[in-house]
Structure formats: C-alpha cells, structure tokens
Design a protein around this nucleic acid. Structure first.
Lengths: 137, 137
DNA sequence: ATATATATTTTAATAATTAAAACATATATT
DNA sequence: AATATATGTTTTAATTATTAAAATATATAT
C-alpha cells in the first residue's frame, strides 16, 4: 500500500519535472525564434546580461563543460560581435566575457515580441514559481 | 518611466527563468548522481517511463535532434540493456523504444535517495509549479 | 630566484550531430 | 496486381562540439 503511494509520487515528480523543463525550454525557444542562436548560446547571453559578465571558469561551471569548450563557445559569439573578452587588471590571468553593445541590444530585442502586460504577468509568475521551487531544492 | 518598468520586468524574467532552469537541472543531476548517464540519457529514460515507450520520431521531436541522432542515442542505452526496440505490428515501419526491466528498475532506484516525506513534498510543489507555469505558457 | 598554483588557450583525438542516401514498409493510383 | 509516392528508421560520410593534456601567461609563496 505504502509502496503504491511512493510509486505514485515518483510518477508525479517525473511527469511534472519533465513538463516544467519542457515549458521553460519552449520559452527560451520562443525567445530565440528567428535568431540563429542555439539554446545554450542564448542562455549564455542572458547569463552575461544578468551577471554583468562572467569569468571563463564560471561559464564552464555553469554549463558543466571543460574550459576548452568555453573558449570555443565564446570564440563563436565573439565572431558574431555579441560578446568580447576583457582581461582583468587586478588579475591578468582571468578573462571576463562581456556583452558588447550589439549583444546588449540583441538581448533586449528578444523580449520585444511580448506586450508590456504579458511581460508583467510572466515576471510575476516566474518569481512565484522560483520561490515555490526554493522550498524543496 | 514606462521603459524602466519594462526593462525591470525583462531583468526579472531572465533572472528567474535562469534560476528555474538551473534548479531543475540540479535536481536531475542529483537524481543521476553516481550513475554514468548524461542528463539527456536520464531524461529519455524518464520520458520512456512516463509515456510507456516512445517512437523514434517522438524522441527526435522532444530533443530537437535529427532521427539519426536518436538512433545513436538509443543504440547506447540499448547496449547498456536499459531500453530495447520493439517493431510495432500495426505499422512495421515504426520502432518503439521501451525500458527493459533493468531500465525500469534503474529509474525507480534513482528516487530511493529521497525519503517518503521528501517525495511527497516534491510531488506537491512540482504540481503547483507546473500549474502556475501553465498560466503563462 | 625558484617553485608552485591558478586561469585560459591550444592541440590532437574522440564523441556527437547532421544531411543525405539507403532500406523497409505503407498507402494510393492506375 | 504493378507502380508510384509517402512515411519511419538506419546507415554513411562529413561536420561540429567536447574532451584531456600540454602550452602559455600570470600570480603567489618559499
């Protein structure tokens, strides 16, 4: 009996988690509609925007890839003139990846497909969603 | 003035969406801890479990990859004896990918690291999260 | 000075993905 | 029934992405 409850909960978790991931992936897809950017490229641009730039190692950690992979990811976005590398003066070993003004514009533009009201709705719901998820993870 | 509100909402959306994605990714990472399976392999196993098997084309659609990539993904999981291919009798062109009993066991085991209570909590929260996300997407 | 540690890039090899062709089966047309 | 067309999966060859390890550059400690 108790086992059935357990199994039922596991099924709910799988189902809901997959739907949540799918919905958020679809949202990012929607954002990047018409852009020739991959999901990860777009996510990196957003990350750079909200963090005000990131170190290569931070990017590697975030995407769970090796530093070499970060170099190649960033080379491509740099070639598109969306990001640029800035050597830090305090510690000249570190490279900070930052959005160019073109990159900033691109990120802002992505959201122009939504109305003002829709953006307000989405912002509020996502805040609540994140708060709710914070209670378990 | 109105532009600032807009920009503020966009920033909230980016920040919250990235955190939501990160949290759900971390959850899947936690699930697969100790397993030598990639995120996508694990997600495919869960999908097969909740859908009771999937056609190759459905998998390609879900992951947004070509049919050739599905063949190779599935070859690997088949080699691990986690899934198997079943030709459908109604239409012998289609292959249905299904969990083996080993695969079923593996999926069930993934959740054993959580207590009964924790699973109940997670299930409830995820249902609410998904409901909430449904209001905007 | 020298040694050791840290951050990024380069390199060569491996793995994953794609586009297109091949194969197998189904459905429609003559 | 024979032929043509469409659909679903696999194979193939080429491209792209990722890795592990070496190389480069800078920092910190002895």
């Amino acid at each position: 009996m108790s086992e059935n409850v357990q199994t039922h909960n596991i099924e709910i978790i799988m189902k809901e988690m997959l739907e949540i991931q799918h919905k958020s992936k679809m949202f990012v897809n929607l954002l990047s509609e018409g852009e020739s950017l991959s999901q990860n490229q777009l996510i990196l641009l957003l990350q750079l925007r909200i963090n005000g730039g990131m170190k290569a190692t931070e990017i590697a950690d975030f995407f769970n890839v090796t530093p070499g992979a970060v170099t190649s990811m960033c080379d491509k976005l740099e070639a598109l003139n969306l990001i640029h590398r800035i050597r830090e003066n305090e510690d000249r070993r570190v490279v900070k990846l930052m959005l160019t003004s073109v990159g900033e514009g691109k990120v802002q533009d992505l959201f122009m497909k939504f109305s003002h009201e829709k953006l307000t709705d989405i912002a509020e719901v996502l805040q609540n969603v994140n708060k709710l998820m914070g209670t378990i993870f």
